[in-house]
Design a protein around this nucleic acid. Structure first.
Lengths: 261, 261
DNA sequence: GTCTATATTTTGATAGAC
DNA sequence: GTCTATCAAAATATAGAC
């Protein structure tokens, strides 16, 4: 299963592009990395841009395909957003360099061969995140005051940045990254789930057993409601302690702070 | 207040660098944008890298200075994280292009004149976010199961991405972006505090009106125990408000005659 | 398929007239 | 301070031998 020479060129190019950027990477550097003479590259590709374009297109094709499956699938919005995180990380694991190129140079590739196809794929991938998020708002799963578009953009961004942050151990960290991102974003975005915060299990989204909808916590017996209130009490007491410390620290003159005017 | 020619070179360079990337921007393009001949640029700067470096250093100097004020200041971690968001956006508003360059090329500037100084500033800015976040964990304000380092990195990333997303209207949107980011991240990170915000936080971002506190949806099956807890909650909130007002008056001694400590 | 050699352009930077 | 003119290096891409 030795990679073809052509595939090796793509891989090494992607690595260099992701490290230095496309325009800072030379044909000669790519050739050196592959172990070929620079002229030989033109036997496989017509230009540097053609290499770049194929790297990105290959990545986006896989991403769109996986997103489509999630988008046309079933389950709660919470469950499907978790799936979006997971498949994003899985595709990123298969295209580690392309994922970073995608983030780095997304805005400056208008003059690329096959740009129309690329732009369509990018638009669709954004659409998928947005669609699922808005569905969660429509069906009442999410009802925070936060603009769904802003929310979805932030969540998506953090997922792809996570790929960069966890570069070397991505495959092994997919579970924990998925759990972290969904926990940070969904439990902030979908209120009334104070009991869902701990998230001790690293495998909440795996496979096809949709989680119960968020509204379930509302229907649960009073015991959980009591727990929720206890939890809120604890939080308030924390605030009290913090405020107390603050008051003490204010004994000395402090510079004015911007409380939010 | 006409900008000096030197400053104009910096501004136009920053714009081009942010649009196309440093290595894809030529000296001649910069000269054209400024309205000079390419050779004339070398009367003001020794090299393209020198221009690039000064753009970044100027931005980071301002950022570090503002972060330092927040870091050495007082207040709850929640309040100070909100300040971090706000000052980040304010500095970004003063250095719009540099902020995007900072995001785009942060990883590939190891070979820059003055790189040591730049790296130190970057490290400090990361440290500031991390330090405040961890302080919130230590004093009990934040007690989610999420790794503070991961959390802080995501929050910081979203703040700076917001600059890019809100490019044209950043100055006008600082309030709403701050509210959105803090709402998404803090109310997700600090659990069980649906309406316990100790600060008079201005209303949410979008035109969407805030929903009633989450606890009311749990209110339905409430028994006596729940009522007791709710009662205690209300009392605590009362105390919080009183304490908060006290802190406010202590923070701004000029506006009241409380004066004493 | 791969190499050597080279054509062609572009780029960062310099020299010197005004 | 600005321009014209140009250098020297580096880049993309091509041609043709093997």
């Amino acid at each position: 299963m030795a990679a073809s020479r052509r595939q090796l060129i793509l891989t090494e190019s992607a690595r260099l592009f992701s490290e230095r950027g496309s325009s800072a990477t030379t044909i000669r550097e790519i050739a050196d990395a592959v172990g070929l003479n620079s002229g030989t590259l033109y036997h496989y590709f017509n230009s540097k841009d053609a290499i770049f374009s194929e790297i990105l297109t290959s990545f986006l094709t896989d991403l769109v395909q996986r997103y489509e499956a999630v988008l046309t699938g079933t389950g709660t919005a919470r469950h499907r957003l978790g799936l979006m995180v997971r498949v994003s990380l899985e595709v990123a694991d298969q295209h580690p360099y392309a994922t970073e190129i995608y983030q780095n140079e997304l805005e400056s590739l208008s003059a690329l061969p096959g740009y129309t196809q690329i732009a369509e794929a990018v638009d669709f991938s954004h659409h998928a995140w947005h669609e699922i998020t808005e569905e969660g708002v429509r069906n009442g799963e999410f009802n925070s005051g936060i603009d769904p578009f802003e929310f979805q953009r932030m969540m998506r961004e953090c997922v792809f940045q996570s790929v960069r942050w966890h570069r070397k151990t991505l495959a092994a960290d997919i579970e924990s990254i998925t759990a972290t991102v969904t926990s940070v974003f969904l439990d902030g975005f979908a209120p009334a789930r104070p009991d869902a915060v701990p998230e001790p299990e690293p495998a909440p989204v795996s496979e096809r057993h949709p989680q119960p909808p968020a509204t379930t916590s509302v229907h649960e017996p009073a015991g959980d409601a009591v727990d929720a209130l206890r939890s809120e009490l604890d939080a308030l007491r924390s605030d009290m302690r913090a405020m107390h410390n603050l008051v003490e620290s204010l004994s000395k003159p402090a510079e004015s702070d911007i409380g939010g005017d």
